[in-house]
């Protein structure tokens, strides 16, 4: 085979490789260049964020409207401070509530936003005031066990 033909094929091969790596980093790992999409940042404070991770989606009515960009513990009040980047095309009212939800029983955790009724919208850097924390399975089971034990204790007293 001629060298030029081989060069051509190897060129195609390298191009395929580059395309594959690009696909993996952009489409699969979603490495979108910072600042390319227009977003604005809000933050919310939660008692407990459970298993929420950076890059987790922020959804409103099931539609992804943004992503978690940062999670930190605020040492003033010992609450978890979660920064979220919201797509600029979506505006939310000042009394919007945020809760940490789980997709399916064992699925990933995400932030759900529920639009309120206030006429004014949240501005970049604002705090989402109304929050409810993640359901932590252990706590849930713990509560259930306690109430179950109490219930059965009452049952045994009755007869």
């Amino acid at each position: 085979m001629k060298r030029t033909t081989i060069d051509l094929w190897v060129g195609i091969f390298v191009a395929i490789g580059l395309a594959a790596v690009t696909f993996l980093s952009l489409r699969v790992a979603n490495l979108t260049p910072q600042g390319a999409d227009k977003t604005y940042t809000l933050y919310a404070e939660f008692d407990n964020i459970g298993g929420l991770k950076v890059k987790a989606p922020v959804k409103a009515s099931g539609v992804v409207v943004g992503r978690v960009t940062g999670i930190a513990l605020d040492t003033k009040n010992y609450l978890a401070r979660v920064n979220v980047a919201i797509d600029s095309q979506y505006a939310f009212s000042r009394d919007t509530s945020a809760e940490i939800l789980t997709a399916g029983l064992l699925g990933e955790q995400y932030i759900g936003l529920v639009q309120g009724g206030d006429e004014e919208d949240l501005k970049p850097g604002d705090r989402i005031a109304i929050t409810s924390s993640a359901m932590v399975l252990e706590q849930l089971i713990g509560k259930f066990m306690t109430s179950f034990a109490e219930g059965s204790g009452q049952d045994s007293k009755q007869p």
Partner: peptide, 13 residues
């Protein structure tokens, strides 16, 4: 979106 949320460029790719 599930893929993008869970795949980390450095750790996985």
């Amino acid at each position: 979106s599930q893929m993008q949320a869970n795949v980390d460029l450095h750790v996985d790719v």
